[in-house]
Amino acid sequence: MALLDVRDLRTHFHTEDGIVRAVDGVSFSVEKGKTLAIVGESGSGKSVTCLTIMGLNSGRRIDISGEAIFDGVDLLAIPKDELRRYRGQRISMIFQDPMTSLNPVHTIGRQLREAVQLHADVTKAQANARAVEMLKAVRIPRAETRLDDYPHQFSGGMRQRVMIAMALINNPDLLIADEPTTALDVTTQAQILKLMNELQRDFGSAIILITHDLGVVAETADDVLVMYAAQPAERGGYEDIFYRPHHPYTWGLLRSLPHLATIGEDLKPIPGAPPSLLNPPAGCRFHPRCPYVMDICTTVVPEFALVPGSGDHRAACHLDEETKQREAATILTETLADSA
């Protein structure tokens, strides 16, 4: 059984302008010890999906429906205080911007200790020992002496390591990482990703990795969920998405990746901008930007259907199977040509 099973999740915000359907029918599951990458543009609903599971959405007037079954318990149905006990202990989260995610007026020792003592009845000394252990695990030099330092005395990459240490300090079953490397420079990004992979191996936590960067996905993911305009566009194993992509939006994402072979050429962005979630397009939400658009796309919502002959590879697109396979093959050739 999956560790986390999310079914038909919907998160609707009531705003002055109307109802924003930030998440509109998303389903996925995360297996124990595996990594699921949720990919999509800004505003596609990937962060809100995870914040909803954690019960961390801000704002007053929110409608949430669906299920998020974590280890047999529906997180969306239990009382707030019970959900709080899951946070930081069984499910933890790290965020995009390490520069602002740590409290500037407390030492990192205090912040790490807090994470331990919130969930376990241990002494300050024991919590400190655990904090040092974790700082060592995320390879922060001179861990013992750094406990008394404040966040501003760390670099961005080091702060993200502290955040990871804090998230893993209680040995959670699931770590949600919301664009953990976006705010970091490229070399630091690579180090953090490597660290996360290693820690996942040592700690055995499952990871949900939210990102807009397919490069990051390629390095870490077991399964991939591609989201577009609050809905799933495509979902499948790593190989399904990279070798047999079945949705024009995924094709666009793959094509827009910069490759060594395309140096000197212009990047190929997906034309247009993501739609407003206040008033999304009728039919397939991607149709205004889709180069393969057909009449049916403007009126009929495509089913999130199983790809024929696959295990659990799904895509929401009206195109016929033959076209999809042909396009997927073309993209694969382009990408292979690059790596060759």
């Binding site: 961390l56 946070r87 930081g88 965020f95 602002t100 919130l118």
Partner: peptide, 25 residues
């Protein structure tokens, strides 16, 4: 602030979030 969200993500009860992370700042 992001660090208030971090405190909640750690599982801190609202009162502790308010006292330890919000008020002082």
């Amino acid at each position: 602030e992001d660090y208030v969200r971090t405190a909640r993500a750690k599982g801190a009860p609202e009162l502790q979030v308010l006292r330890s992370h919000v008020l002082r700042n």
